[in-house]
Write a protein that binds this DNA or RNA. Structure first.
Lengths: 215, 215
DNA sequence: TTTGTAAATTAGGATCGCCTAAATGAAGGG
DNA sequence: CCCTTCATTTAGGCGATCCTAATTTACAAA
């Protein structure tokens, strides 16, 4: 395993490769690599038994590949908790450095870090932290943008993307905070939110990446 | 910079490349790489201005190369403090994982880790932790093996090598602990030590890698 | 001064992970 | 059913880092 191959597996997982076939083009896009190079690597990874590769169709992770992807996610999220809770990192900074740290986090390290952090269930961005056996506690969520005007809920998760994280943190948006959609601008216009009495405007695009409780 | 090149610089530094020329053979040995490959890489690193390479003579670090080596050492030792103090690592485990972590520790991370740890001066094995400006507080030390029978001192540092660390930790040897050389076996025989009243025997070879105050 | 030996370099090759350009396959619209 | 389009694969290459084998250099002992 190299950090490189790990990134392939992780991104395929994030693209849904645990349940369905993922096309090469998508993988090439998120990894910023030429499609031809992706084909090559996928064949290699399938020979290693880490994914099922169906030419011209796509790839999905095997149990082994899934295990590696989840282990990476676990390391990533545990580090995020550490970086924000103890080192004073911001949302986006934590994500950035965790992206590096995840690749050099053997089970011994993630296990002890987990204990040190007192077994956190969620990362600072609201994603569930997989247990050491690979189990993930999923919570049913929907994007904020699906709420109707006047509806209330709680913010449970935000997508991990640098620009978005900086934007949302500057707005003072917080995980588990109460939110009410005051109004929705027409034509994918901005949403006006009520956060504990504070009025905040967020773009439609951002609202697609913010998740709240289902129902 | 790649982890690879970083390792070259770090090992050259540890072999004394900050003060004198280091031969290729030594570098090849510690990195477990063929001498021919070392020649190749040294030429590359010298083109990058990280070291002075004198064919058939050896190499020494430039200011830039030295800076990188010291930054690595700083990250390594800070992580060791964290791993032992907060995650319950042993001497050798801490060294092992710090070896990985050092390569993905940008200044932002080492700076905040340093603060979190309350600016420790020494790593758990007794080596000084370089400051962020590259400054290192050196303390004059000599190997324990140089002490005469009956002499007393304090253990200040041990070499970082897995086997040695496991050996010494199993003996209960501790940094800053008082030590008196009770007797010295002839012909590079073992030394009998008195550690706070406890009698402990260590091999000659180990005593070469344990450092105590000078004079 | 010659020469033996150990260290270092050169030559030639392999593998890995990436690239571009060209060819091929799949899938829906006419 | 054909054909366009777009995803994908194949072919051929490149640079990085390692290797082994053969050659050259440095240095010191005879």
């Amino acid at each position: 395993m190299t950090p490189n191959k790990e990134d392939y597996l992780k991104e395929i997982y994030k693209l849904g490769g645990a349940e369905k076939l993922v096309g090469n083009k998508q993988i090439a896009e998120v990894l910023k690599i030429a499609p031809a190079s992706v084909t090559e690597m996928l064949i290699k990874l399938s020979h290693e038994g880490l994914l099922h590769y169906e030419p011209y169709k796509g790839s999905c992770l095997t149990k082994e590949g899934l295990q590696i992807a989840i282990t990476l996610l676990r390391g990533h999220r545990l580090w995020e908790v550490f970086l924000m809770r103890h080192l004073g990192y911001s949302w986006s900074e934590a994500h950035e450095d965790a992206e590096l740290l995840e690749h050099i986090t053997p089970p011994r390290l993630s296990g002890r870090l987990d204990k040190f952090l007192n077994y956190p269930a969620y990362c600072p961005h609201g994603s569930a932290i997989p247990h050491s056996d690979g189990q993930i506690d999923r919570k049913p969520l929907r994007p904020l943008v699906q709420l109707a005007a006047g509806e209330s809920s709680h913010i449970r998760k935000v997508a991990e993307e640098k620009e978005l994280l900086d934007y949302l943190q500057s707005l003072g948006i917080e995980i588990d905070g109460a939110v009410t959609v005051a109004s929705i601008g027409p034509y994918e216009g901005p949403l006006m939110l009520d956060l504990d009495g504070r009025q905040v405007q967020v773009s439609h695009k951002a609202a697609c990446q913010i998740y709240v409780d289902e129902r």
